[in-house]
């Protein structure tokens, strides 16, 4: 019997306007527990607005949000208070409190605070007043505040902002580790190369509309592959390959085969024509390129 996965988040027909500006247009998506979901899109696409709606911080014009099957709105969000941790926009920090005291506002469990401080390596400055923190330290504290209660759903808005490469790596590792134990993550980030390394699913949003929701496997499959060939006689090689019906174009000193092809017959065709091959590379679009292509295709 197939195991039915619990729906962590379900958003149906979400609409939101600020004055005359439509911010969200009929937003629909859902994802299961234990997943790491990336919410991506250009600036002003509506990512933060979606996250705020998920937290019950924003009254919406239409649609509904459910977390673990329970409704979420400005007036009804007990599931958020009990099961969700979040970092939205910038870390919510009182400058007159130390990092430790901020965490004490989130939980009474010293064990949990010690855990999150250690795991994010904040020991050196956690008892210092937050007004003396750097941007990265504040960001880490904001993340720690979202994680300290070990919520079932963690919503992180641009969590990598201001973090050094080591901290980014450590955070990535922590997110994967926690997701392995059942925590669900919804993460928005502009650093798609970082997001690509951890997310299971990507939700692409632009101008308040969800353009696609795909698993990383599906996105990798839809990534275009090409072959870059450099020979001693590119002009002659181009004619030979075109005669053999290969989809090939010349770009500067390279020949680009724009579709995935079997390598051996292609090489044999060139070698049979006595063309010397200098370099051959296989290239696959990364997440950033795929998403940018999808955005451009939509605009066209």
């Amino acid at each position: 019997m197939q195991r039915v996965q619990e729906k962590m988040v379900r958003v149906v027909g979400l609409r939101q306007t600020f004055g005359h500006r439509i911010v969200l247009r009929d937003v629909n998506f859902e994802f299961s527990a234990g997943k790491i979901v990336g919410l991506v899109g250009p600036n002003g696409a509506g990512k933060t607005t979606v996250m705020k709606a998920l937290l019950g911080l924003l009254p919406t014009d239409a649609g509904n949000v459910r977390i673990l099957g329970q409704p979420v709105s400005v007036n009804t969000h007990s599931v958020v208070t009990q099961q969700v941790g979040a970092l939205i926009e910038r870390p919510a920090i009182y400058p007159f409190l130390s990092g430790w005291q901020q965490l004490q506002l989130m939980t009474t469990s010293e064990k949990q605070i010690t855990w999150v401080v250690q795991v994010l390596q904040m020991d050196a400055y956690i008892h210092r007043a937050a007004k003396r923190y750097s941007l990265g330290m504040k960001q880490k504290l904001g993340i720690a505040m979202a994680l300290v209660n070990r919520p079932r759903l963690v919503i992180l808005d641009e969590p990598m902002n201001g973090l050094d490469p080591q901290s980014v790596k450590r955070l990535r590792h922590l997110i994967v580790q926690m997701a392995g134990k059942g925590t669900t993550f919804l993460i928005s980030s502009h650093i798609l190369s970082e997001l690509e390394k951890i997310v299971d699913t990507v939700i692409l949003i632009d101008q308040g509309e969800v353009l696609l929701q795909r698993t990383m496997t599906q996105l990798r499959e839809s990534a275009r592959q090409s072959l870059v060939v450099q020979t001693t006689e590119n002009a002659w090689a181009l004619r030979v390959l075109l005669q053999a019906d290969y989809p090939v174009t010349q770009r500067v000193r390279n020949l680009i085969v724009t579709k995935p092809v079997a390598l051996t017959p292609l090489l044999r065709t060139l070698l049979d024509a006595h063309i010397q091959i200098l370099k051959i590379n296989q290239y696959q679009e990364d997440l950033e390129t795929v998403l940018l292509r999808l955005l451009t295709e939509r605009k066209v």
Binding site: K52, L55, G56, L57, V74, N75, T76, H77, S78, V80, T81, V84, A86, I88, E89, R90, P91, A92, I93, Y94, P95, M145
Partner: peptide, 19 residues
């Protein structure tokens, strides 16, 4: 006003059922 100035109102609002 400090809650709006520091942006901490978002955190507070998610911790209570009624703002």
């Amino acid at each position: 006003t400090m809650e709006f100035e520091y942006g901490t109102i978002k955190q507070l609002a998610t911790q209570v059922n009624h703002r």
